[in-house]
Design a protein around this nucleic acid. Structure first.
Lengths: 218, 218
DNA sequence: TGTAATGTTTACCAGTCGGTCAAATTATCC
DNA sequence: GGATAATTTGACCGACTGGTAAACATTACA
């Protein structure tokens, strides 16, 4: 008599590790394009190269798959913001944060779109994460930015909207990739485009936030 | 014998005008939240307060509804960029563009999300619009911005990425509204939040783009 | 007011959806 | 190698999907 579900076993077998990996990889492919409602288990099963009941052997429901995916991706996704260092130099910290976020948009566009789809559709599955861990992390980093502004190291500005603007400008290149490509044309794609975006954004934020020498902060 | 479909008639009746309006309004509600694949005709019919076959009397297919909606919304959506004036003063033009885009994000969030959903999912229904009218308009305005930079009126920067960054930062407040609200907390919503965002973005872009007096452009 | 055109609804269809079941197959371990 | 647990599959289910047919109701207009 088989144990009802893989999840019930104490130790995960090699096969379980492999298949769950395989499934989540396929699920990321599908969910990131079509969102939760727009995706079907059949699609994911086909991408994963296994039958639907087999897939449902590892994840009981579509929701369970989606949740496992979100949980796995969320931690990594917040890494750049977590790396934001209060002791560091404001200009290089902001520059570094932009670059790391931009690299993630380039290297993990599916992860970005997964969240974008979810938030766009009202975040029905990740509301708790947004109001909990995410908000706490942002609050913490916002305090850092505010202290920099108070100390005259950067111009006075709303730290929350600063963070929003860095999120939106960088993730734009993952989430709206089709549009960006349509507007820029075939000409330059890939690395060239990435460097242009990085140069522009660093210029925008560094110049836009530095204290102007002809209008001293003090 | 009834004429097959309303679309076939030469003159639109009063009822047609009203019902089509009613349907597109409901369709905007639904499509903007769930995207094309994730939305169902039944949902739209319920929101519109009419039976599914009645709805299908005015729009033959789900696709037709979606297309009609996109066509109607696209023109309005590009209005702020079209208003961008080559003869105007660079600073006030950019400031005005940001404010208009932000107003649209506030007043027409559903329209913003409709496009966001569509582009995010690979723009399967609006690829032509992106590569055609949109690209042309952006090319035109990019040329204006480039001429300003050449004339030393603003700092030298990539005009395309400038436009992308204004799009992303402003539309963020419509598309990622749930996240913005979760992070900012209940405290200030509505008008206060809007003014904070406007102040921050105008500061960011105006200071970030102005030619620094201690590093003259010439 | 009559009648033809327009508008609305009920009942229905075939295909797809998320998910179950039991039987068959494969891996594991003594 | 055999018993036992883990894995995989085909057949299937009821609910929902986009869309149709045809009868019925309403409107516009001569």
């Amino acid at each position: 008599m088989a144990i009802p579900r893989a999840a019930k076993t104490q130790r995960r077998t090699r096969i379980q590790e492999e298949k769950e990996e395989q499934i989540l990889e396929a699920a990321l492919d599908v969910f990131s394009v079509s969102g939760f409602r727009g995706s079907t288990i059949d699609q994911i099963a086909e991408v994963a190269g296994m039958s639907k009941p087999n897939l449902l052997y590892y994840f009981r429901t579509k929701e369970a798959m989606h949740r496992a995916l979100i949980d796995r991706v969320l931690f990594t996704w917040l890494e750049p913001l977590r790396a934001f260092n209060a002791q560091g130099n404001p200009e290089s910290e902001i520059r570094g944060y932009i670059r790391r976020k931009l690299e993630m948009a380039r290297d993990f566009p599916r992860e970005s779109r997964l969240f974008a789809n979810e938030v766009l559709q009202g975040a029905p599955h990740i509301e708790d994460e947004l109001k909990g861990p995410l908000k706490e992390l942002v609050d913490e980093k916002a305090a850092v930015i505010r202290s920099w502004a108070k100390a005259g190291k950067i111009v006075k500005c709303d730290p929350y909207h600063l963070i929003f603007s860095i999120w939106s400008t960088t993730q734009h290149y993952a989430d709206f990739d089709v549009q960006v490509r349509a507007v820029l044309g075939q000409g330059q794609s890939g690395e060239g485009r990435f460097e242009d975006a990085a140069r522009f954004l660093e210029q925008l934020f560094v110049d836009g936030l530095s204290v102007r020498t002809n209008q001293p902060a003090s």
